[in-house]
């Protein structure tokens, strides 16, 4: 066993050339459009394998639950979105299980395969490393706005924020969540990096804390890239986005890389049209994470 519950996926070494990775992830739907929801779920499941620099997913199994009163076409739509995303990632969806449940659930399990020496872990970041993030932050306030603008009393509270900002946040979040981290895994196979993790439910700071603790270093963030419109929404909702603590869904990859390899990493990401932001650095320490007082916030 090379990695267990503390990592994004479990890793078991089969022989000197092959390690098998497994992950399981599901949640209740966050958007009403079934195919988009299916794509978000597939993006989230596969991301845990890609976070470990393994682009090869050999099997995906879906997990779905839906209530008696939910129209069948919604369930079919979610599965279609899930299957389409897997196909586009060349990740074979080979089965799964669906049950009736009082509330809907969508997700799955993914199995990846890679060379044991080419797997990237959350541990391993070193003092002096630079930190690169591959997607902006802000899914939590954006999706809160998505829900609120569908409800009368929610719309009333959103009145003070220009509609174009709300739209930018919502559409940006949906695009972000349905964008795969697979190209990042492929880049990490080429460029020597020290550590990586994807950013999901625990937010930037929470996942960085895991990296810092497992690596026995401190992490400082001096830049926070956020979706356009989310600072205004965060002010309204009181979410801790500017503290790096807001939850993300199917977020980007946080990569620790030696300064000498930083430009190669950024060039490789650029070539694959992967967004990239230098967000901070690693220093000697004992597992602490801090967002700098004068953190630069950029809306993208």
């Amino acid at each position: 066993m090379l990695a267990g519950p503390w990592e994004n996926a479990s890793v078991v070494k089969v022989n000197e050339d092959v390690a098998v990775l497994n992950t399981l992830d599901f949640f209740t739907p966050i958007v009403d459009e079934p195919e988009i929801q299916g794509r978000i779920a597939a993006s989230n499941v596969t991301s845990d394998i890609y976070a470990m620099a393994v682009p090869k997913i050999v099997t995906v199994l879906s997990i779905m639950a839906f209530p008696e009163n939910m129209p069948n076409e919604l369930a079919v739509g979610m599965l279609k979105g899930f299957a389409d995303f897997c196909r586009e990632m060349d990740a074979p969806l080979l089965g799964g299980h669906t049950i009736r449940n009082p509330w809907p659930i969508i997700g799955g399990a993914a199995t990846g395969a890679g060379h044991p020496k080419k797997i990237m872990y959350t541990r391993g970041s070193k003092p002096g490393d630079k930190l690169v993030l591959t997607k902006p932050l802000g899914v939590q306030p954006a999706m809160a706005a998505y829900r609120m603008r569908k409800e009368e009393d929610g719309l009333e509270f959103l009145q003070d924020i220009p509609e174009d900002l709300v739209e930018a946040a919502v559409s940006g979040a949906i695009e972000l969540m349905t964008t795969s981290n697979k190209p990042v895994a492929e880049v990490m196979q080429q460029i020597p990096v020290h550590a990586a993790t994807d950013i999901t439910g625990f937010g930037l700071k929470g996942h960085a804390e895991n990296m810092a603790k497992l690596s026995d270093v401190d992490i400082i963030f001096d830049c926070l890239p956020v979706l356009r419109g989310t600072p205004a929404l965060t002010d309204l909702f009181g979410y801790p986005l500017m503290e790096g603590e807001a939850a993300e869904t199917a977020g980007g990859m946080l990569i620790a890389v030696a300064e000498k390899d930083l430009n190669d990493l950024l060039d490789a990401l650029e070539k694959r049209k992967v967004r990239h932001f230098e967000v901070g650095y690693v220093k000697e320490g004992s597992g602490n994470v801090k967002v700098a007082e004068k953190v630069k916030v950029i809306e993208v």
């Binding site: 306030p141 609120m148 009393d153 909702f237």
Partner: peptide
């Protein structure tokens, strides 16, 4: 009421 409505109503 689910998030973020409680905070908005409190404000």
């Amino acid at each position: 009421k689910v998030c973020p409505m409680p905070i908005l109503l409190i404000k």
